[in-house]
Amino acid sequence: MIPACPLAALPRGEALRLETDPPIAVFHTEDGELYAVDDTCTHQDASLADGWLEGCEVECPLHASRFDLRTGEVDAPPAKLPVRTHQVVVKDETIYVVPSELPPNLPPGVRTGSA
């Protein structure tokens, strides 16, 4: 479990990028839900934390594919693969991420430091 930040430090409508390997984006939706997905878009090297959060979806800042934060599914090209999702836990007013054990869907040319 990775500590992300105090709950109070991530207001609704905001996103946080964790410098994990690969990086993880944590979102706090307007409805108060917390979600975490891989920060790197599955199409190219863009940070989803920089994207546009609307409902439970984030729109990639570069080419506007939208990812469902609950499932990681993508709605429309150019991205074709879902983004990997991670579990979020809030304990003692702190946000934690439980990283997924599945392999990530990183875009061509982007590698994890260990791979």
Partner: peptide, 10 residues
């Protein structure tokens, strides 16, 4: 400036 562009674009 992808982050601010995404916001300004709207």
């Amino acid at each position: 400036q992808p982050r601010s562009f995404t916001r300004w674009r709207r």
